[in-house]
């Protein structure tokens, strides 16, 4: 290692400080929300809380978790996240497997591929999409949240390119031993590509957990909302009846701390899977 010049040393210090500042800027708003949600009524309504709770208590979380609608919304979110991710990964693998084949083995493969990619390039727009889902009779059922987003073409393309990198010999050898396509896909390709499947699954799960707009337009009753839609309804127009509380419960609790508690509960599952992302992404 060569000796550092003075300007290099100054740059190094300034750079570290700047990067640390930016990193803190990325999490301070979340820390603030957490602090507000844990603070007392007086401290939150008079905006005293910065990044550390004042008058620590868990009342906001108790109120949120006691409400029935919140639990229902949470369950809808968990169901759509797990069900949606399973279906999406299954379909992604099937589509990617067939399209990873050469034109010689799978006639019309390029045509199918463009058929998929076209949906990535062109959208009918909000209203036509809504009408299709409505006329298919999916509205007010959990399928409205799963089926329209079941295939993410971008993931299919990623998966397809990954499958193409797998040596042909593996597939040919197992075919000679009598395996069919499904067997090749699930006992050869699946284990080999497990890391990328896991990564795509994580992204799909976060996508499902965070989706709120579909719940808002396809669901008529608040008790069918997934959590993100439920939170949106609460944050946008703070309506206590939606959360299933009567105003008398809330006398001891400020609106701000309850909102903050709900937002933090919405972030929490993402924080749980976050270490996996951090590991995959660097």
């Amino acid at each position: 290692m060569l000796k550092l010049s003075l300007s290099d040393r100054v740059f190094r210090i300034v750079n570290h400080l700047f990067l640390a500042l930016m990193a803190f800027l990325c999490i301070l708003p979340m820390v603030h929300v957490l602090a507000v949600s844990l603070s007392s009524d007086y401290a939150t309504t008079s905006y005293l809380v910065k990044f550390w709770p004042i008058g620590f208590n868990l009342d906001a979380y108790k109120t949120a978790l006691d409400s029935n609608n919140f639990i229902v919304a949470f369950k809808v979110s968990v169901l759509r996240t797990l069900g949606g991710t399973l279906l999406t990964m299954f379909l992604t693998m099937l589509a990617a497997y067939s399209m990873s084949k050469d034109d010689r083995y799978f006639k019309g493969r390029t045509l199918y591929a463009w058929f998929f990619v076209f949906t990535m390039l062109f959208h009918g727009g909000l209203i036509p999409t809504y009408l299709v889902v409505q006329k298919s009779g999916l509205t007010n059922s959990i399928w409205a949240l799963i089926l329209p987003v079941a295939v993410n073409v971008f993931n299919v393309v990623l998966m397809m390119n990954f499958f193409r990198g797998i040596p042909k010999e593996l597939e040919e050898a197992s075919m000679i031993d009598g395996a069919g396509h499904f067997r090749v896909l699930f006992t050869i390709f699946f284990p080999i590509s497990l890391p990328s499947i896991a990564t795509l699954s994580l992204f799909t799960m976060v996508f499902h957990w965070n989706s709120w707009f579909d719940g808002m337009i396809y669901m008529n009753q608040a008790d069918q909302f997934p959590l993100a839609t439920f939170l949106q309804a609460l944050i946008a127009g703070f309506d206590y009846t939606k959360i299933g509380l009567n105003p008398s419960d809330l006398e001891q609790l400020s609106e701000r701390s309850l909102k903050s508690a709900l937002m933090f509960i919405g972030i929490f599952p993402i924080l749980l899977v976050y270490p996996f992302f951090a590991k995959v992404l660097r």
């Binding site: 708003p29 965070n210 709120w212 939170l231 937002m263 972030i267 993402i270 976050y274």
Partner: peptide, 10 residues
């Protein structure tokens, strides 16, 4: 990884 519902609220 956090959606705009929550970030918008924050």
């Amino acid at each position: 990884f956090i959606n705009w519902v929550i970030l918008g609220g924050i």
